[in-house]
Design a protein around this nucleic acid. Sequence first.
DNA 1: GACCATAGA
DNA 2: TACTTCTATGGTC
DNA 3: TGCCAAAAC
DNA 4: TACTGTTTTGGCA
Lengths: 618, 618
Amino acid sequence: MSRTTFLNVDDTKAGMEDLDKEKINKLIQEASKNSKFFKQQQRREEENRRRIEVKLSKIKSFSTFQIEQAEKSADRYLNQLDKTRDLSRIFCHIDMDAFYASVEMRENPALQHVPMAVGGEGMLSTSNYLARQFGVRAAMPGFIARHLCPNLVIVPCDFNKYRVDSSKVMKIISEYDENYGSCGLDEAFADLTNHLQKRSTLSEEQRTFPKEENSTEIITFGITAEETVQEIRHRIYLATRITASAGMACNMRLAKLCSDINKPNGQYQLESNVNVILNFIRNLPIRKIKGIGKVTALHLESLQIQTVNDIYLKRGILKLIEYPSTFDFLMRVCNGCGSTTIEHDDLQKSIGHETTFNGTSDSLQLISLCRDLAKKTVDELISDRILCKRVTLKIKTVNFEILTRSKTLSSYTDSLNIITDKVITLLKHELDQDLELPALRLMGVRVSDLKMKSSDLPILQFFSKKSTTTTTTINENTHDIIEDIDDDDDDDDEGEEENLNEEFLSIENQYNEDCNSKLIHIDDENSNTSTTTCPVCQKMLLGDNDKINKHIDLCLNGEMIRTTIKEQDQQTSPQTNYNKRINLTQSKVTPPAKRQKRKFNTTPQQTNGIDNYFSKHI
Amino acid sequence: MSRTTFLNVDDTKAGMEDLDKEKINKLIQEASKNSKFFKQQQRREEENRRRIEVKLSKIKSFSTFQIEQAEKSADRYLNQLDKTRDLSRIFCHIDMDAFYASVEMRENPALQHVPMAVGGEGMLSTSNYLARQFGVRAAMPGFIARHLCPNLVIVPCDFNKYRVDSSKVMKIISEYDENYGSCGLDEAFADLTNHLQKRSTLSEEQRTFPKEENSTEIITFGITAEETVQEIRHRIYLATRITASAGMACNMRLAKLCSDINKPNGQYQLESNVNVILNFIRNLPIRKIKGIGKVTALHLESLQIQTVNDIYLKRGILKLIEYPSTFDFLMRVCNGCGSTTIEHDDLQKSIGHETTFNGTSDSLQLISLCRDLAKKTVDELISDRILCKRVTLKIKTVNFEILTRSKTLSSYTDSLNIITDKVITLLKHELDQDLELPALRLMGVRVSDLKMKSSDLPILQFFSKKSTTTTTTINENTHDIIEDIDDDDDDDDEGEEENLNEEFLSIENQYNEDCNSKLIHIDDENSNTSTTTCPVCQKMLLGDNDKINKHIDLCLNGEMIRTTIKEQDQQTSPQTNYNKRINLTQSKVTPPAKRQKRKFNTTPQQTNGIDNYFSKHI
DNA sequence: GACCATAGA
DNA sequence: TACTTCTATGGTC
DNA sequence: TGCCAAAAC
DNA sequence: TACTGTTTTGGCA
Ligand SMILES: Nc1ncnc2c1ncn2[C@H]1C[C@H](O)[C@@H](COP(=O)(O)OP(=O)(O)OP(=O)(O)O)O1
Ligand SMILES: Nc1ncnc2c1ncn2[C@H]1C[C@H](O)[C@@H](COP(=O)(O)OP(=O)(O)OP(=O)(O)O)O1
Ligand SMILES: [Mg+2]
Ligand SMILES: [Mg+2]
Ligand SMILES: [Mg+2]
Ligand SMILES: [Mg+2]
């Protein structure tokens, strides 16, 4: 029977060291076989193996001399990297252990002693360490996990709770580096260098904390990096009753690797010494490196590269066949280089929503859903005071093939009509044009090319109905603004003017479609009768989700403002709260990925940047 | 180890005939033992056994003579009943097979071949016939069901779908008796007598239907009752693709019993002949009779009554120890008597909402939740244009003890403030007074003493701010109205005046409480990202439940009105639609019990009424 | 500018 | 009852 | 009028 | 991850 390695357990995760991979993979393949998902993964693997063959034959065409020359070139580059190596700073990477699962286990301690996972029958977001022993992990569907572990307890996601714990953690970390940066809800980087300098001047009292919550017993932490991080982790535990692991090293890539070493509930400091560093990374499996995923690993492994040191050994070939940026990335990796500055994004780069449903080909259903998704996205755009200039439609067929269609708008906008019309046009075009298109199982709407809609200059609103205003970026100026407004040259097939009449017609069309029978809509079932407890103020909430999320938003934003009766937008605390805000989203099975404001991109840096460089043709 | 029969499988259900009760009960008790629920059931059983002991000793105190006299009295009563026996009509009881489960299996045919149930981990609403083989049935918690049947597939409730199928079924039934009455979503009584008379005059064409949906093959049904019901069931299947069972007999009680005989997907007609009837019921286990539940059965069994005929045999004792109404009920049962008229309620008698949550004692949480429940209830009151005069608070402790506290208002109202204040007063009183009160796990708010708020006499609004108006009941008149208004004598501790100022203060108080930390709220988790398909128009819906329910309401009400843009209340189709309307509610695991407008009460009838007469002291 | 593939939480 | 959601990036055409 | 227990779907 | 939600009735105090 055919298989695909793409479905095998990914054991590159703490707590999954001594699995019977053989048996687990057999069960997974068994459970998956003949599914459309399985077939799609097979196609994907085949496509990659084909590409690999091309590469391998390309390699054969190189002469030994060419390879030696390439190796020398690589060595020169490595030398250069060595020169810019900065060992002076000390970074810390904090990562919560089995984050969602830990929160749920704290809420219900009975779960501590059984294998459990967080998510749904359809998809798990994470699992506890007991479940990992069975091969159950994040991104595995629940029903397959049950094959691996029949007694698995699956508890539904409650992002509200996770957000609350996350913000407690971040608050603590910010005390050690106010410029810290977080990825996702459960991890953050902090540059402890400055704190460590100041730390020796701190009084003992300032390094002293209760041993247990509400206990009079106390514990004082020393002034070393190791002890500082003990302190951070202790404080996190006091605040959340869940454990974190941490890694310390001279750059962020190494710190991240270190936080995995003694996970869970451990920490590891890597000495800031070149030989120690090179020794540390030498034998790591490439898959542990952030940026090397399943596919990249497959490609590298086909070159006999298993460990980081193998990258070094194959540097000649890599120089010859990989794209420069990929080569650059790999050289940094095998040389132990990484970013030494925490860069925050000025502004989020895209906002979107997508949803999976039972496959359908019905145009009216799809169009109606598309409209809803656009609405949801624009609502967020508006509530975040952001404008966009690009709209992307995403669809996935029942065969798990993904398509995107996008269009740049003639100017920045947050108009529901313009955006909706555009994305519906894209969708209709796709439905009309591709008559072979299989039924769809997912649709998404995303807007990008974002710009802050600053309300500091309301006068500008006089120039354009489109509320095209200015931006918060400092290097933008009035010239840019005028450009924005002038930017109305119609290189578009259809115009994007928004006038009241059109708006009315558009809504009316929507209504007619609604009534036309056979349309689509998103919602969550079991809505009516259950109660949710606000994880901040413990209030039990009855009613619809939007209200609940708003309530929690308010709670998280610190003291609630007692001046108005209705818990409504009241976004009268714009920038201060805005910057600290954790972006709130939730769905049955995943996405607090909703970017946090303190989140920073592990983006390509000019110097020593942790970079995600890799190529689809690697 | 101790047990309680109250937790044993209840095998009085179609499809549960040859179970290994021994084994199943062992598993259930094992899974339940030590739980608070278990302990509560034990207490309940003990209490009943105590009462039974009292009864038994009472029986011992009767002389043989007394018993003989009682038997004679009973015989006279039976004779009387015989005289009023009406064998002239022919009733049909239709009951869908494994209703929710069948709908789900139709939607996903893969489920046909596995044991499955509808509900959640916490509670199942029903199971398919395969699952019943394992002892899995309605009102069993999912996690216990999994002990009995580890491969059980549990699919969540989707009341919207069930409502749609239900209305299709009811529509068909109404063609045979426009005065039909339904209990719950999945069953109805029809009096076929008139239809059968007219039926012989129908053309063959009018008794002819396609054999399959969209097929040209046809099938013609005859004119007998048996064939008429075949036709009904065939049409139900054509319309819904799910099967129904049916029973025909000369009264409703017998018809209901008959529909169970050849379930699933069968029918049974009981000859309208006294001897046949008596023979039919003679050996039925008492538990099959509607109105005899677990407790009543336990009581009767302690008198050696197992079958309906045993009731007859023990008629002397029953006459002596049971309450007259219970005795009356039992005599009707064992004599094969039942109601021969379908009575519809003029107006629903109560409206309420309740919810279960993780036990808490926190007053602020509880008060806040109570407010939300009151709001939800009043919303429904208002949207149904109903007034109420009584408010009941229901609470359940973590030990599963249930309390109710209620209060009659000084006049009819649908004022949120009055109702909320009253129920909160009740709650606070309970929380303050009973300091021993364990944490709560459920709270409910219910309003009763209802009266239609007819808008036909808007002039009356001038007399009172409370919108106390008239009623739809014919025997009420202007005198009553004036009484209502005058009815403002304060026999109440606190007044119920509603003025704007008070209202404002009340809401402000609420807000302060909200902010005061540690409160409660109801909601459904996974709301944001999934899609729901409207079971009527197939539109996929994105967003919150209230909107979705409104949408489906509109769809069910037939053609949607295309005159307004927003799908809002637009309750401009008051009485016509109102009468046909199926009351829509949903929750994670149960309650389409939300009364349907065509629903009728199987209430005590003066003559031959199906009656639920029984006594808690039976 | 538009699309795809990859990646990570 | 059943293979996510959200965001970011680089390469290609 | 108010409370409880039983019952049905 | 875990014992429902909605409604009606009868009896008693
Ligand atoms: N594929 C995914 N889809 C959706 N959510 C995810 C996914 N992977 C992780 N998450 C969520 C759930 C995790 O608890 C949280 C943090 O991720 P991550 O740190 O990688 O794992 P973890 O914290 O659960 O375990 P650990 O860090 O101990 O290995 O992000
Ligand atoms: N205890 C309960 N709690 C909540 N919902 C219930 C309960 N019992 C039944 N229901 C719902 C689900 C059922 O499908 C529907 C009709 O009930 P009912 O006719 O008694 O059983 P059923 O239709 O599922 O099986 P069948 O009639 O074949 O025995 O009402
Ligand atoms: Mg983690
Ligand atoms: Mg993480
Ligand atoms: Mg049924
Ligand atoms: Mg039924």
